[in-house]
Amino acid sequence: MEKDPDYRAAALIVGVTGMVGLTLAEALKKPTAPGGPWKVYGAARRALPTWFPSGLLDHFIAFDATNRDETLQNLSPIASNVTHIFWVALQIRETEQLNITLNSTMLTNVLAAINSASDPQLRHITMQTGTKHYMGPIFDPSLSTQLVPHEPPFREDYPRLPYPNFYYALEDLLATYSHSFTYSIHRSSIIIGASSRSLYNTILTLSVYATICRREGLPCRYPGTLYTWEHFCDMSDARVLAEQQVWAATTDGAKNEAYNCTNGDVFTWKSFWKVLCKVFEVEFVPFDEKDKFDFTELMRDKGRVWDEIVEEHGLYKAKMEDITCFEALQTVLHFEFQHVSSMNKSREFGFFGYADTLKSVRIWVERLRQMKIIP
């Protein structure tokens, strides 16, 4: 593809159908986007879902980044155009060692394809990771019971933990390319946004849970502990993440650094639960430590109920197990520490984006409804 003189920069968003991929495309296509006007290429493993806004991308490419030949074949036509890569993709397997192998392979293949151009233009890559950087592989059953996380609030200058972590592997891989282009690392908290294609989607998981509770007349009980109910947590609005990534990609003094990215506030799950219940018009049930239940087990057999809801409301057709993460959320809601990150470094470098988390809940639930992912 020939270079387009109407654009100052060309972005390749890898993982464009996820929560942050969608908001990145929207942010880059704003007339006021820093570094713009942007040509935006979007990439994902599967075809665009029906809820993805038509016309938001200049070009969409579907390919399997774990396959080197397929990646080269699909990206070589645009390789000489791409100036920035926004990496918001991930694949998760049973063990962290498999995660390291798989995700490193994906990044290696994409970088090799873009750098295959006779005159590569790649200037910067933003890499989204998360607070697992400070906690270790919390979803690896062979390692999760051994983990000793850092003390919160998490800070970017904390040393690495002595456990395998695919975030570390990706950071090290980017560092080997430091002579060719700049990069920035963006460590999100629990992401709140709208997509049916994000592996860990807390707000969609809770939306499905509340919707089923309302339909079946079940109490919308909090599936965590008294500690997480009462103590502080933080989240990352997908819009704030996109804003920070575009800022880092276009600000000279922000490059080659790692940044936490949260909304800048904290909340308790008790306050979050009150908002959730109000939005879904279910009764708020105060947490009762005596009323123990297995969240994952409760929802295991609710797939049929969700299928009925999808059919009745004409929703985007997706199986409940493909759009929820009950087991992962149950792990988060049983943390024995406050899940909070410091935003001081980000502010010191000049990024001041923020969001009110409890207002974000309403905004993103409404967006999920508009997208016909939930009723």
Results as ranks from 00 to 15, higher is better:
Leu174Ser: 11
Leu122Lys: 02
Ala169Thr: 07
Asn109Tyr: 10
Glu151His: 07
Pro162Met: 09
His150Pro: 15
Pro149Arg: 13
Asn165Ala: 11
Thr182Cys: 04
His186Pro: 06
Ala194Gly: 06
Val148Phe: 02
Asp119Tyr: 07
Ser118Gln: 15
Leu204Asn: 04
Ile203Val: 05
Ile138Thr: 11
Tyr167Ile: 00
Ile203Met: 03
Asp119Val: 06
Lys132Met: 09
Leu206Glu: 02
Arg155Asp: 11
Tyr209His: 11
Ala194Asp: 06
Ser144Gln: 10
Ile125Asp: 01
Ile192Lys: 01
Ile203Thr: 02
Gly130Ser: 11
Ile114Phe: 14
Asp172Ile: 09
Ile185Ser: 08
Ala112Trp: 07
Arg187Ala: 11
Ser196Gln: 09
Thr129Trp: 10
Gly193Leu: 09
Ser178Asp: 06
Ile114Met: 07
Tyr167Ser: 05
Pro162Cys: 09
Asn115Cys: 04
Ile185Trp: 13
Tyr183Phe: 12
Pro141Phe: 12
Glu171Tyr: 01
Pro141Ser: 13
Ile190Leu: 10
Ala112Asn: 12
Ser188His: 00
His133Glu: 07
Thr129Gln: 13
Thr176Gln: 11
Arg160Ile: 05
Val208Gln: 03
Ile192Val: 09
Ile185Cys: 08
Ser207Gly: 15
Tyr209Gly: 08
Leu147His: 08
Thr126Gln: 05
Tyr168Cys: 13
Phe139Asp: 00
Met135Cys: 09
Thr202Lys: 01
Pro162Ile: 12
Phe181Lys: 00
Leu199Asp: 13
Arg187Ser: 11
Gly136Glu: 04
Tyr209Thr: 10
Phe139Ser: 03
Leu170Ile: 07
Ser118Lys: 14
Tyr200Pro: 00
Phe181Ser: 00
Asp140Gln: 06
Lys132Leu: 07
Tyr167Val: 00
Gln146His: 05
Thr145Cys: 01
Leu173His: 10
